[in-house]
């Protein structure tokens, strides 16, 4: 099995925090923490599997080109609404979403739409909500949190647009 550097980081983290836990709380705390982590792992496994499948399926349905075409304009609140929806539906981790945001930037999306997209992906992302938040924090909390965050990507986009009117914060489109 090939190990990436990130894997080693997580392994190091576990060993480091485990050692700290042993030194501060003793062996019993280490064992009970490990058992708790094991139970949690078993609990999230079915949802995690479903989330991964959803990610794979959604990428077959929505193409990157299609999203770029929808967000390619510059102004208007409708673009921000589309950006919110696109961000919420974009599956996968930052390793898939940021390359996508960069592509949108080159394709001509404005700073407001890009920031709305990122805010929506991180706050409302359907994939993460299903894989992590629902199973771990429960339906009630997830519903309240989702509702509370629903209007925020638009707010962020409007603030970003307002800020880019100042020369210091203006963004130049990257050269392709």
């Amino acid at each position: 099995m090939k190990l990436a550097r990130t894997d080693l980081v997580f392994m190091g983290l576990a060993i480091g925090t485990g050692t700290l836990c042993y030194l501060r709380r003793g062996g019993e705390a280490v064992l009970s923490s490990a058992a708790e982590a094991g139970i949690l792992f078993l609990q999230i496994l079915p949802q995690l599997a479903a989330g991964l499948l959803i990610g794979g399926l959604v990428t077959r349905l929505v193409s990157r080109e299609k999203v770029a075409a929808m967000l390619g304009g510059s102004s208007g609140i409708r673009r921000l609404l589309v950006a919110t929806l696109a961000g919420a539906l974009t599956p996968g981790g930052p390793f898939t979403s940021f390359p996508m945001v960069y592509a949108l930037w080159i394709a001509g999306a404005d700073a407001g739409a890009l920031i709305t997209f990122i805010a929506s992906w991180s706050l409302l992302g359907f994939n993460r909500l299903i894989v992590w938040e629902l199973p771990l924090l429960g339906v009630e909390f997830t519903a309240i949190r989702f509702l509370a965050c629903l209007p925020l990507p638009i707010v962020a986009g409007l603030i970003a647009r307002w800020m880019t009117r100042f020369a210091v914060l203006r963004l130049d489109r990257p050269a392709e």
Partner: peptide, 27 residues
């Protein structure tokens, strides 16, 4: 195949991540 690929990537990391989180809250 996509799902399996991501899953394989997580298979090693996730248990360690959960362990680290679990230890961390003790400290």
């Amino acid at each position: 195949r996509d799902a399996l690929g991501t899953g394989r990537m997580l298979a090693f990391r996730l248990p360690f991540a959960l362990l680290a989180a679990s230890f961390l809250v003790q400290v």
